[in-house]
């Protein structure tokens, strides 16, 4: 193994994944000729990826006939925007599904309903809804990010023994930009969520300020704050409230 082995590892993985362009592939192949560790790396990656050929998900068939799926999609287009959970497996068992599909299929030819002018009051209501939805989405994503920071610490490749939070730091910065926009657009509509939004913003600022590779101890202060303020639980409650 050479001192520069580490920098070839990513390219060797990508070669195993068949994801290099011809020029990059030629360079990696040339390196492999003189690097036994890289060849072993390549073999190990290929063995793992070969296993995917035996994954039944690759050849899995949808559990319902296409006609039934069409029926569901058309029904959804006629519903309110929020999706309903549906037990597809139960539907697959019954002939009723097929009968229903046959009955509703002709609806595919229905003409599109023409749009009517939207009254101002309705527009204002939609704007309020939008402000609350975007606050809820922001909190959802912040919650996922904070959970990732706590639950999915990946080892840092450049510096073993440290944790890689580069992606989380980048996403925190993006979320903070969205947060700034949200305040401009819907301040009053999300007033009840303000204390939580402030807490979350503080945590995101801390994550955003982290370097890509950190010691585990650097994350502990963030974890403690999250726990002390019950941030994750509050996000669950507030997003539910925002979505009505």
């Amino acid at each position: 193994m050479t001192l520069f082995h580490g920098r070839w590892r990513a390219r060797v993985s990508l070669l195993a994944a068949g994801a290099l362009d011809p020029h990059e592939e030629a360079a990696v192949q040339a390196h492999l000729a003189s690097c036994g560790a890289c060849r072993a790396d390549l073999e190990a990656s290929r063995r793992a990826l070969d296993l995917l050929d035996r994954d039944p998900a690759r050849a899995a068939e949808p559990p319902v006939a296409i006609e039934f799926l069409k029926t569901r999609v058309l029904a959804r287009l006629d519903e309110a925007p929020a999706p309903r959970p549906f037990r597809w497996g139960l539907a697959a068992a019954g002939l009723a599904a097929a009968a229903l599909a046959v009955a509703i299929l002709p609806l595919l030819d229905r003409p599109v309903v023409t749009e009517k002018p939207v009254p101002d009051e309705m527009l204002a209501r939609m704007e309020r809804r939008l402000a609350r939805d975007s606050a809820a989405r922001y909190l959802d994503e912040a919650q996922d990010l904070l959970v990732n920071v706590s639950a999915h610490p990946a080892d840092c490749e450049k510096d073993h023994g440290r944790i890689d939070v580069g992606e989380e730091a980048r996403r925190s910065r993006e979320l903070l930009e969205r947060r700034a926009l949200m305040v401009e657009l819907g301040g009053d509509e999300v007033a009840s969520a303000q204390p939580l939004l402030d807490d979350v913003e503080g945590l995101l600022r801390e994550v955003a300020a982290l370097p890509a590779c950190v010691r585990a101890e650097s994350l502990e202060a963030i974890h403690r704050q999250m726990e002390r303020r019950h941030v994750l639980m509050k996000i669950d409650l507030v997003t539910r409230e925002l979505r009505g």
Binding site: D55, A57, P62, L69, W88
Partner: peptide
């Protein structure tokens, strides 16, 4: 492949076409 759950996968397909 992502979700490993038939119902959730079908929901994702349905919502994709919607």
């Amino acid at each position: 492949s992502y979700l490993r759950d038939v119902d959730e996968a079908m929901d994702a397909v349905q919502e994709t076409f919607v």
